[in-house]
């Protein structure tokens, strides 16, 4: 169905590109800034609040990095690389999967590491639920979101992508603002983990199958 060797070639190439790209440094800097602000504002707070914030913080860090790295799809569309790749034996699905996996892996690694640093600096000892959430639920959620975002980026024209970027950014900030403003005390439980993981897996599987029916002509026409 999909050629694993092609996908691993693409993932390896993406890693090399991201390491050499200055935009990764920029997103790491924003994360450090974000973490600094977060650590400063949560220093005096009780530990139950940490339990409330951590789930959101890890997701937001992962999504911001993923969002920033996904711009490589837009750049490659503009530079005609996607069109050249689509003329090769690599299928659209393999291209999508390679991009999604590489971006998600990098975003998830950064999100998990940043969360661990925040936890350590706050002397917070996570329970088994929290560990499972950070190590499995967060990466799956990031994978699902990046998969969906990549598919959207393939289909949208350059102008539409700019509009979508604004909408996404505003949404992330609104969510963050709402979380910080209202006093949510819901803790991460196995039930919430199940809901988020199921949602992520379902979204990813649906996107995985939708890409089979993707219209390459529509993608090509967005290049103009």
């Amino acid at each position: 169905m999909v050629n694993i060797s092609l996908i691993s070639t693409l993932v390896k190439k993406e890693f090399i590109e991201v390491i050499r790209d200055k935009s990764l440094g920029a997103s790491l800097f924003s994360i450090l800034l974000f973490m600094g602000i977060f650590l400063f504002t949560t220093r005096e707070r009780p530990s139950y609040l940490m339990n409330t914030f951590i789930p959101y913080i890890s997701l937001i860090i992962g999504l911001i990095v993923g969002f920033s790295l996904s711009n490589s799809i837009v750049r490659e569309k503009r530079e005609g690389v996607i069109e050249t790749i689509l003329c090769s034996p690599m299928k659209l699905k393999e291209l999508w999967l390679g991009k999604t996996l590489s971006i998600s892996i990098m975003s998830a690694v950064i999100a998990v590491l940043s969360t661990c640093i925040i936890l350590m600096l706050n002397n917070y000892e996570p329970d088994l639920t929290m560990i499972f959430y950070i190590l499995f639920t967060v990466p799956f959620f990031i994978l699902a979101c990046i998969g969906l975002l990549s598919l959207i980026y393939f289909y949208l024209g350059m102008r539409q992508i700019q509009i979508a970027n604004y909408i996404l950014f505003i949404s992330i900030f609104l969510i963050l603002f709402t979380i910080l403003k209202i006093n949510i005390t819901t803790e991460i439980t196995w039930r919430t983990i199940n809901i988020i993981t199921s949602f992520s897996v379902t979204t990813f599987i649906i996107t995985f199958y939708i890409i089979d029916y993707a219209d390459i002509e529509k993608i090509i026409l967005t290049l103009e």
């Binding site: 530079e79 005609g80 069109e83 050249t84 790749i85 003329c87």
Partner: peptide, 21 residues
Amino acid sequence: DINLRRKVGVILENDGLYNKL
């Protein structure tokens, strides 16, 4: 025919090259 693409080379208006590599 995906395999047929192996017999064809393409140079489009853009070079299709990765700048960071």
